[in-house]
């Protein structure tokens, strides 16, 4: 993909065509794609999973001045978009957590985000 923005919109089209979809992106991708998340995902009510590496968060083991501004504003950004999210710190119960998120996105018919940090940043 040339941009997370189109990734979200392509995923939305595939979801409307009957696929269970996930869009994987670094935290910056949420900023890049917030227009698409809002205008297609949220406004149209399209279930999709956003798998986001939570770079620049407290638990980011490789945090630096390069990432931290993106990390500290990521959750406010998602909350502004009214996107439900969970922070995932390690692989314990990961399959169940992903299934929980899929169930939530299908029930809400909205994008839902999983933010991966801590052990996933090593």
């Amino acid at each position: 993909m040339g941009s997370e923005a189109e990734g979200v919109s392509i995923a939305a089209g595939a979801a409307l065509g009957g696929k269970v979809v996930a869009s994987y992106m670094e935290g910056t991708g949420v900023y890049v794609s917030c227009y698409n998340i809002l205008t297609v995902g949220v406004r149209y009510g399209v279930p999709m999973l956003l798998l986001v590496s939570y770079v620049g968060s407290f638990a980011d083991r490789r945090n630096s001045f390069l990432y931290v501004q993106r990390g500290t504003k990521l959750i406010p950004q998602l909350e502004a978009l009214d996107v439900q999210y969970q922070v995932i710190r390690n692989g314990e119960g990961l399959e169940r957590k992903v299934k929980d998120a899929v169930r939530m996105m299908n029930s809400l018919k909205q994008p839902v985000a999983l933010l991966f940090t801590e052990d996933f940043t090593l």
Partner: peptide, 10 residues
């Protein structure tokens, strides 16, 4: 982009 997603899904 939405059209691409639909074309791939169907």
């Amino acid at each position: 982009a939405v059209g691409i997603g639909l074309a791939l899904a169907l």
